[in-house]
């Protein structure tokens, strides 16, 4: 039998995902805990995502402007930055920041609950811990990351407008007009949809690592760490798949 740890882990995560779909859509629904998790993973990530989005937009603008000026294409900076942020940088940077903040926190929290028998205690209390802890968190990350990405994109574009105005003067209306002129729905929608998959990956891997943590406090640390590493890697793999699929569909 082929016993590569990598394949075994991949299979185990796939099984975990299968269990999510089997159990997640059957009652009882943990609505209250789901909204609590939306607050934790969504609302509490706002400052981090906002700051990252602002810096991303500003740096991208300030670095590309001199080069574009050399070719006399300064007027294209808003279009280029808009395309870059909305199609790629916004989703991927937000997802990576999200993986670092939320993936690690879910891995550590569930890992700690596992090693201190709190998950067993939940089961003994007549609660399905998979539904209460895993389904709610995975759903929350899947739904919150797209919203955070839209917000980061908006803040990034505003930062780009600020960046352009540090070098010259452009009205907000002209800036927005330039950004929108370079975008079509075929570019915006795939970029938006892939963030659902990024969010799902972060939640699922964080929960998997925490739920199966062993070996005491060292295991909790390992769960948090590997949750970030594996979900970040998965985000890049999913991004690569997304670009291939949109290419096949003629959206690139």
């Amino acid at each position: 039998m082929f016993s590569s740890p990598f394949l075994a882990e991949t299979g185990a995560i796939a099984q975990f995902a299968g269990r999510f779909f089997r159990e997640g859509f059957r009652p009882r629904y943990e609505v209250r805990e789901f909204f609590h998790q939306c607050y934790v993973v969504g609302y509490q990530s706002l400052p981090m995502v906002g700051i990252t989005g602002f810096i991303m937009g500003l740096v991208l603008t300030l670095q590309s402007q001199p080069t574009m000026a050399k070719f006399g294409a300064e007027a294209w900076v808003p279009t280029m930055v808009g395309l870059t942020i909305i199609r790629e940088m916004g989703p991927i940077i937000t997802a990576l920041v999200f993986a670092g903040k939320i993936g690690s926190s879910i891995g550590a929290e569930l890992g700690s609950m596992r090693v201190t028998e709190q998950i067993d205690a939940m089961e003994v209390s007549g609660t399905n811990p998979f539904k209460y802890l895993v389904v709610t968190r995975v759903l929350a990350t899947t739904l919150m990351l797209p919203l955070l990405t839209v917000l980061a994109d908006g803040i990034g574009l505003y930062a780009s407008y600020v960046g352009i105005n540090t070098q010259g003067t452009t009205t907000l209306a002209l800036f927005i007009n330039n950004v929108l002129s370079g975008l079509t729905f075929a570019e915006v929608l795939p970029a938006f949809f892939k963030t659902f998959f990024f969010g799902f990956a972060v939640g699922l891997v964080g929960c998997y690592k925490g739920y199966h943590a062993t070996k005491g406090t060292a295991g909790v640390g390992a769960a948090a760490n590997s949750a970030v590493v594996v979900s970040s890697l998965l985000i890049f793999i999913l991004d690569l798949l997304a670009v291939q699929i949109t290419g096949l569909l003629g959206f690139n």
Partner: peptide
């Protein structure tokens, strides 16, 4: 069931 570690939700 009373757990050895108490298993209180911290």
């Amino acid at each position: 069931f009373l757990f050895q570690s108490n298993a209180l939700y911290d």
